[in-house]
Design a protein around this nucleic acid. Structure first.
Length: 449
RNA sequence: CGGGGCGUAGCGCAGCCUGGUAGCGCGGCGGUUUUGGGAACCGUAGGUCGUAGGUUCGAAUCCUAUCGCCCCGACCA
């Protein structure tokens, strides 16, 4: 993309409504525009990151054997009357009446609808296990939306639902989700810790939420410092292997890690003092096993291998896709702007032309642009007729992890400069070497697809 | 939903107390000189002062109502 042809309305000054860093940078980097309290338009740059995050979520869900689909945002009220949640949900649910006076609602979640779909088409245990998911906009009419996309009323969420013949199978689905979530967050450059949680209005017995440590987080968290050393890395996990999947879950849930809701002072104090950590976290996902809570009242039953009709065991699992943008920025920024992890960056590499209109510099930038594109990478070429300082400031603000700087001075020696946004370190090399280096950096991220 | 604050140009703000020609900075547009970390100068466009009533000869300013937004708390992906 050539910046002169793009729509990137960056702001020098911070809009007054933004308090926390991710909100400020998202506004300043021209990623979002607020339309009402807790409701945002996604401008091109923000949209690219959102799409990238969505893509990673899809890839990891499909890898775990889960099946993508799409349910509507607007739902009929009768499904919710059937489960009993129409009255239970309260004013957080946006209720709508259509022209025929039918009661509708803007879905805050989809347990009822997915159960309705399941019961209409699945009758035998032979069709199980099955996990269906979608990534769709939700609306929860929060009393007090805040922190930009971190607590919006409208938000994009991945929600998945597993259907299994018995509890053991459903718990395997639970574990499978835990592992797939760990991998998802790692690919986004995040350290997300699974913590035992409260089930809230969704109900159920087993539930973990995933928290990203950040001082601006909304939840107070208590954890064993050992948990932050754990990484999934590149290890291959066979999602069909119950024992292998459970082993990973056991590893990640063994160290003490809880939110204030479930915190157990006695257990926590049993840890060596040096390992006791108290901090704040941003919740970026939650998984639940809730058994037959919905399948029983809604009649989602299958015939098991004994010929008996049994309600299916279910769980649900959510990732706050739009919230993740905020969480990633909270976890990865400095005083100049955002620092995108390679996995989610909107553009792989920035190209800064220090002297637009200089024949050699223009040609070198064009060459880099073509070469990077040919490698399957998406460069952002700042070809505006701006001074160097303005271009650097823009690049730093929008946070592309790598920048190639091209100027007449370096070109005389046949070199350009490759700079890491994270460390600020620069290295001079030939344009060809810079392209090769950037391509190499992104190889693992492209391969992960 | 309780408490607090704010709505004036695209963005950040002053003006309001003490009513009398609506301002400043950034940004935009045109130009000149510049050009390796948000350049300088000149010129120029842009606002029914959130909305509706009221008081007044006259309201951004005073009064009333209303809408919107932000912050703290209680609640939530």
């Amino acid at each position: 993309m050539r910046l002169s042809r793009y729509f990137l309305p960056v702001l020098k000054e911070t809009p007054s409504e933004a308090q926390i860093v991710s909100h400020r940078y998202m506004l300043r980097a021209g990623m979002i525009k607020q339309q009402a309290a807790g409701i945002y338009s996604w401008l091109p740059l923000g949209f690219r990151v959102l799409a990238r995050i969505e893509e990673i979520v899809h890839q990891e869900q499909v890898r775990a054997g889960h099946i993508p689909m799409l349910m509507p945002t607007i739902q009929p009220a009768d499904l919710w009357q059937e489960s009993g949640r129409y009255d239970a949900y309260g004013p957080e649910m946006l209720r709508i009446r259509d022209r025929h006076d039918r009661d509708m609602l803007y879905g805050p979640t989809n347990e009822e609808m997915i159960t309705d779909i399941f019961r209409a088409h699945v009758e035998s245990y032979k069709q199980l296990p099955m996990t269906l998911y979608h990534i769709q906009w939700k609306f929860r009419d929060e009393v007090r939306p805040r922190f930009g996309v971190m607590r919006g009323r409208e938000f994009l969420m991945k929600d998945g639902y597993n259907f299994d013949v018995d509890k053991d199978a459903a718990l395997h689905a639970y574990n499978r989700h835990m592992v797939s979530y760990l991998r998802t967050y790692e690919r986004m450059g995040l350290k997300a810790i699974p913590m035992r949680a409260d089930s809230g209005p969704i109900g159920g017995d087993d539930t973990h939420e995933f928290l990203v440590l950040a001082s601006t987080g909304e939840s107070e968290v208590f954890y064993d410092s050992a948990v932050t050393d754990l990484t999934l890395g590149n290890r291959a996990v066979d999602y069909a292997d119950r024992a292998a999947v459970k082993a990973v879950c056991d590893e990640f849930t063994a160290p003490y890690a809880r939110t204030d809701e479930t915190h157990d002072e006695a257990l926590f104090n049993a840890l060596p003092e040096a390992r006791r950590k108290v901090g704040r976290g941003i919740e970026v996902g939650q998984i639940f096993y809730f058994g037959t809570k919905y399948s029983e009242p809604m009649g989602a039953v299958v015939v098991n291998d004994q010929g008996q009709r049994v309600p299916v065991h279910m769980g649900s699992h959510g990732i706050g896709v739009s919230r993740l943008l905020g969480a990633i920025i909270e976890a990865s920024h400095d005083d100049k702007g955002i620092i995108w992890p390679e996995g989610v960056t909107p553009f792989h590499c920035g190209i800064v032309n220090l002297k637009q209109g200089d024949g050699a510099a223009d040609a070198a930038c064009e060459g880099l642009y073509q070469a990077l594109t040919a490698k399957g990478l998406a460069p952002l070429y700042d070809d505006r007729d701006e001074r160097a300082g303005a271009k650097f400031a823009t690049m730093d603000l929008i946070g592309l992890p790598w920048r190639i700087t091209v100027g007449p001075r370096g070109l005389k020696n046949g070199v350009v400069e490759l700079t890491s946004r994270r460390t600020g370190e620069s290295e001079e090399m030939s344009p060809e070497a810079a392209v090769a280096k950037v391509a190499e950096i992104y190889t693992p991220h492209m391969a992960a697809n």
